[in-house]
Design a binder for these strands. Structure first.
Lengths: 342, 342
DNA sequence: AACGTTTTCGGTAACGGTTCCGGAACTGTT
DNA sequence: AACAGTTCCGGAACCGTTACCGAAAACGTT
């Protein structure tokens, strides 16, 4: 029986509809006994309130959306999974929305909020820089997850991520400590503070600390149109790098996927990892542990990041908290893809 | 301005609300000119109809759900991604719902349908065997994707998958052709026709065709509670297998993730892949191509499977088509993790 | 017993759309 | 000019729920 409504329950229990409503939403003004009775009957009749009607009345759907750019990235799917779980625990519906690389995530968000009346949004991945006026149109709280954001610049949003610049610097220094001087890097080119840009900044910072001049010929940028953080791109970029002829003894790939693609390209070119060239990644995906060789990387605490994102968002929704910014520590995981320079 | 309703638009246009509604849902009974005018005004005012109100009235939400067991599996995230895209194209909302390993996916589906009034469901992964009476409660069409289903047994549903048994047989025969006789297998134990069971059946079939007796001591079953198709499980199971002392020259891991975990366990134990032991996977995930060694596998046409799933579902929703069953061919991808027995 | 207070409940108006129904305005026919 | 037929539109009922308001019932107080 699918066409069951609150009225049917009311009739069965011989009470008014409002009493049934009160029983379900544990309102105070109800006799515990009638409440028990109604709840029993509801369970027996297998009745579930119509979500659309609730949302309509509430003027506010008990839902959040997760917008993700490039869902094919494995790193995100774990994040999404945890996020969905968190929402579920709070009895929220979680709407997952892919955003094409070329689409404007803010437009998608705006549309979604108006259409579905949801209460909050979590943006995952990509860069995020939008004019303040347009941002102001977004009437619900949102958190930028895995997207670093200058607290000054973007006013009214929460964020959670690792400090990509710092962690990237940490990784580069580790490579430098191994004796490497010619360290190539695979990264994304973006004007604004995208992850790629930040990781490049950290790399440069480590270099300058050690008095090593930054050399553009060691940098290989992803093509914004065709590349993403995929094995394939790592492979492609590394081959491209190799063709330049510029020597390097370490390759910092700025993601585990890129690193794995890089390893394949290097191996094929007869360059042994790590004997001839060290390779480092970023993210700390499972595969890095099982790859051969194991990928040295910076582990991002995915679960913590996801939980914090959800927590921050729900705090803003409920308690109208001021948006917080949480930065987690990454962890340098040394495995066998890196070694001393020889 | 978020609190915009159809009435506001009607007022602005100096028409009735029903006319606005007609303009939006391209009904016939409307003057093209007024329709244009209203549509222009809607765009100008940035108005988006309230989804909940529409759904409430329609008694039927323009939405489908994708239920997936174990979203952490990379193989599924690509499927989900395509599925979401297909739904989006049809202007459908796609609700992604994780189902815990211990939860009953049918219960979740039933709840979801009642609550959200959605029009169809796609089940992904896991096994699927439910009593007919309970299945009958599910009032919307659904398709079982990546779950083989005996057309006789499950009546009223569509399905799309590769023929796991046949493909598995194909892989086993390939290993046999390489000269292997002692072929270990990692698989899931399930009473009903789950993927694990089917792949084991295919393995047995190939064996018997070649007159080789089936040997239980070469089979290593996943633990239903702790294992899933993950690197870790592949690693764990292989170590377990190794401890038995039963010799084998090939290991068929029934998934690429398991295969990669297996490679690591073997390598650590001083067993070279493929020189001392061949390893084969299943699924055709990207990582298999980039892993070292490249994983020999059966490639499932993920995109086709996803598209067919969506197509079948929408056909059933719209045209009340009788449920179809599509079986795709897998493709044997020979890479370097397998070699002749020596 | 009369009164205020509290507890518990039912009736009903929204929420924002869609759709049915009837009517006005226009067209063409006799 | 009278009429039927067509085109286009507005009014209003309705979808299932929540929340407000007022009332009945139960209780305590004097």
């Amino acid at each position: 029986m699918s066409g069951m409504t609150i009225k049917d329950i009311a009739r069965r229990c011989k009470v008014g509809v409002s009493t049934v409503s009160r029983a379900m939403n544990n309102h105070p003004d109800i006799n515990p006994e009638t409440k028990e009775m109604i709840l029993r009957e509801i369970k027996k009749a297998n009745y579930v309130p119509n979500n659309s009607a609730q949302n309509l009345k509430r003027a506010d759907a008990k839902a959040i959306a997760v917008l993700v750019k490039g869902i094919d990235n494995t790193f995100f799917s774990e994040l999404v999974s945890v996020l969905e779980k968190c929402a579920h625990e709070k009895k929220y519906t979680c709407i997952l929305q892919r955003v094409d690389e070329m689409e404007d995530e803010l437009d998608v968000a705006l549309q979604l909020v108006r259409e579905k009346k949801l209460r909050g949004i979590i943006f995952l991945g990509g860069s995020f820089s939008h004019p303040k006026e347009k941002l102001a149109e977004l009437s619900v709280p949102y958190v930028l997850s895995t997207i670093y954001v200058d607290a000054e610049k973007q006013g009214n949003c929460a964020s959670v991520a690792v400090d990509d610049e710092k962690e990237s610097c940490k990784m580069t220094e580790y490579l430098l400590d191994l004796g490497h001087r010619d360290i190539a890097i695979l990264t994304a080119r973006r004007e604004d503070e995208s992850i790629g840009k930040l990781r490049l900044l950290g790399y440069q910072q480590a270099l300058s600390r050690h008095g090593i001049p930054f050399d553009e010929s060691l940098v290989c940028y992803m093509d914004e149109k065709t590349d993403r953080y995929s094995f394939r791109s790592g492979y492609r970029l590394t081959r491209q790098l190799l063709e330049r002829g510029r020597k390097f003894t370490a390759l910092y790939a700025t993601s585990d996927t890129l690193a794995i693609g890089a390893c394949k390209a290097l191996t094929e070119a007869g360059i042994r990892v790590p004997e001839d060239c060290s390779v480092a990644g970023f993210d700390g995906m499972d595969i890095g542990e099982y790859y051969n060789p194991g990928i040295t990387t910076i582990r991002q605490p995915v679960e913590k990041i996801a939980e914090a994102s959800a927590r921050l968002l729900f705090d803003m929704i409920k308690k109208k908290n001021k948006p917080g910014h949480e930065i987690f520590e990454g962890e340098l995981l040394v495995r066998s893809s890196t070694g001393e320079k020889r």
